[in-house]
Computed example of a mutant assay.
Amino acid sequence: MPANTHPVIWLLALAVVTVPPTIITYLTRRDTKAVKAQVQNSHSTNLREELDDRHDEIISELAEVRRHLGQVDVETGRLDVECQKLKAANKTLGVEITTLTADLYATKRHALGVIAKHHPEDVA
């Protein structure tokens, strides 16, 4: 320690150099303990093995979901075809109803004409 330097300055310099690493070490140890508390367990299985098993289960479930979605796609396609057929049938039925209605009115007009010709007293 140089002769002209006050001991308090040396003490402050020592604190500046040693306190931050000490605090960082303390916080790191505390964080490490928190991580260990989450990772370490009393199970007989290794965490990695457990994660691998769960990963395999998830992949298997996803494959099952994909299979079901494929079936839904096929069924949706079938229903779409049926819907198109029903729309076409509905359009045809609408044309037939229009034609039958026109025929009915024409027949009614014809019948009223016949009645008016042969039985004018029955026509109001």
Rank of each mutant, 00 (worst) to 15 (best):
R109G: 05
H110A: 08
T76L: 11
A88T: 11
G70A: 02
L79T: 01
D73A: 03
R78N: 08
V81P: 03
I97E: 09
G94Y: 03
A111N: 09
D80W: 06
A89V: 06
R109I: 09
T98L: 01
Q71M: 00
V74E: 13
K91M: 07
Q71E: 10
T92Q: 15
N90Y: 04
N90V: 00
G77P: 04
A102V: 15
L93C: 07
H110G: 09
A102W: 05
L104R: 14
L100S: 10
V81E: 12
D80E: 14
T107Y: 00
L104Q: 13
C83S: 12
T99I: 12
N90P: 00
D73G: 00
Y105A: 10
T107H: 01
E82A: 15
L86W: 05
G70T: 04
D80V: 06
L100D: 09
T99M: 13
V72F: 01
A88C: 03
T99E: 14
E75T: 07
T101S: 12
I97V: 15
A102L: 15
T92C: 06
D103K: 12
H110Y: 03
G77Y: 03
K85C: 13
A89Q: 13
Q84W: 00
L86M: 09
E75H: 04
K108C: 08
A102D: 15
V72I: 11
K87Y: 09
D73F: 03
C83H: 10
E75Q: 06
D80F: 06
L104T: 13
H110E: 10
K91C: 07
T107C: 03
D103E: 13
K108W: 04
K85G: 12
V81N: 05
E75C: 00
L100C: 07
G94F: 03
G70Q: 00
L104F: 11
T92R: 15
G94A: 05
A88L: 07
V81Q: 10
G94M: 03
L86R: 07
V81S: 06
K108R: 14
G70H: 05
T76A: 11
K87M: 15
V72W: 02
A88M: 06
V95A: 08
E96L: 04
T92M: 09
K85T: 14
Y105D: 12
V74Q: 09
L93Q: 11
G77H: 06
T101E: 14
K87I: 14
V74M: 03
D73S: 02
L86Q: 08
L100A: 11
T92F: 02
A106T: 08
